[in-house]
Simulated assay, not measured.
Amino acid sequence: MEALLVSTGIVALAEIGDKTQLLALLLAARYRKPAPIVAGIFVATLANHFFAALLGQWITSLLGPDVLRWILGVSFIAMAAWMLIPDKLDDDARVFDRFGVFGATTLAFFLAEMGDKTQIATVALSARFDTLTAVVAGTTLGMMIANVPAVFLGDAAAKKLPVRLVHGIAAAIFAALGVATLLYPLA
Rank of each mutant, 00 (worst) to 15 (best):
A35M: 12
I37Q: 03
V38I: 11
A39L: 15
A39R: 04
A39P: 11
G40R: 04
I41W: 13
V43F: 06
A44T: 01
T45G: 13
T45F: 03
T45K: 07
T45W: 03
T45M: 11
T45N: 01
L46K: 00
L46W: 06
L46I: 02
A47H: 13
F50R: 05
A53D: 12
L55W: 03
G56Q: 07
G56W: 02
W58V: 14
S61L: 15
L62N: 10
L62E: 14
L63N: 07
L63A: 14
G64M: 05
G64E: 13
P65I: 12
P65G: 06
D66S: 04
L68D: 04
R69L: 10
R69A: 12
I71Y: 15
L72D: 04
S75F: 11
M79N: 15
L84I: 11
L84E: 08
I85V: 15
I85E: 13
I85A: 13
P86W: 05
P86N: 12
D90W: 05
D90G: 14
D91L: 06
D91T: 07
D92S: 10
D92N: 15
R94N: 14
V95E: 10
R98C: 05
F99S: 12
G100A: 14
V101Q: 11
F102V: 02
G103R: 09
A104N: 08
T105C: 07
T106I: 09
L107D: 02
F110D: 04
A112I: 05
M114T: 15
M114N: 06
Q119N: 15
Q119M: 12
I120T: 12
T122I: 04
T122D: 03
V123P: 04
A124M: 08
L125D: 02
A127M: 04
A127S: 14
R128G: 03
F129R: 04
T131E: 11
T131F: 10
L132W: 08
L132M: 14
L132S: 00
T133R: 12
V135R: 00
V135K: 11
T140C: 13
T140G: 07
L141N: 12
G142P: 06
M143G: 13
M143E: 14
M143L: 09
I145T: 01
P149W: 03
P149V: 05
P149F: 05
A150M: 01
L153F: 00
G154A: 07
K159M: 00
K160D: 10
L161V: 02
L161G: 00
P162V: 05
R164C: 01
L165V: 11
A170Q: 00
A172M: 00
